[in-house]
Nucleic acid binder design. Sequence first.
DNA 1: AATAGTGGTAACCCAAAAGTAACTAATGGC
DNA 2: GCCATTAGTTACTTTTGGGTTACCACTATT
Lengths: 131, 131
Amino acid sequence: MARKYIDNPNACSLVHTMNIIGNKWKPIILYLLSNGSMRFGMLNTLIPTISKKVLTNQLKELENDGLLLRQSFAEIPPRVEYSLTEKAVGLLPVLKMLSDWANDAYPEMKFEQCRIIENGKKLAYNNVYKN
Amino acid sequence: MARKYIDNPNACSLVHTMNIIGNKWKPIILYLLSNGSMRFGMLNTLIPTISKKVLTNQLKELENDGLLLRQSFAEIPPRVEYSLTEKAVGLLPVLKMLSDWANDAYPEMKFEQCRIIENGKKLAYNNVYKN
DNA sequence: AATAGTGGTAACCCAAAAGTAACTAATGGC
DNA sequence: GCCATTAGTTACTTTTGGGTTACCACTATT
């Protein structure tokens, strides 16, 4: 009687990956931070539809999972910089592949080019997220 | 005054990808089906912790997004076979990279090897999911 | 004296996702 | 005549994720 093997050596780690980044906001956060470190308020501005509470929460979880580095400066008003860890940097090419896949698999969707411009101090990215 | 560009040409398609596969069950379903087509009951058995209602739902969504092919045979008792579309096959290497990344980034987790064995007709995979 | 600016937190609410248990249709086998 | 079998569905409950508003601490600026 023949044996049939169903082999998923990767299913469990895949589940883990999805637990870490498979939600509404985290891939975007990682993508934004791939441009370099960024302050909390900047992230909040660049993702205008996220609430502060949720952004705080996502950042905390990403930090706990070792994907983000959080640097808090003792200044007034406060300044907190978030940046990617090595782990997270290793994930970027895969995220790129995921988005490339979508562009390829759903050409009819013509995904927007999310180019966001900061001009000078604050006004420019204000302009952008107002649009 | 220097302009600073924050470029995410991929953010939107990435969001789309996450909407399609970024949840608890879908990557596992795709991974299981990468071994070939499979019946509803088999999927239900191999993912013992999913409820039938949710499995039905996930399969329906995957089918609607063009990742799964559903073949229903007019037999009694009913037989329904699910298999991957070309789109989904194109996604497999990326899923592989995601799981490889987790294995690499979290070596301390020592993810289980999810090897599931079907022996003959039914008993074997019964044995497996009972464990 | 008042206000703006920053990175949060606390209390509360809501909708969507997921889980549970019972039920169905149609047939073959006992 | 009765049960097992399969791929669901239905109705109901629970859990989760996310959203909203208000508030705080501390200082520089007006």
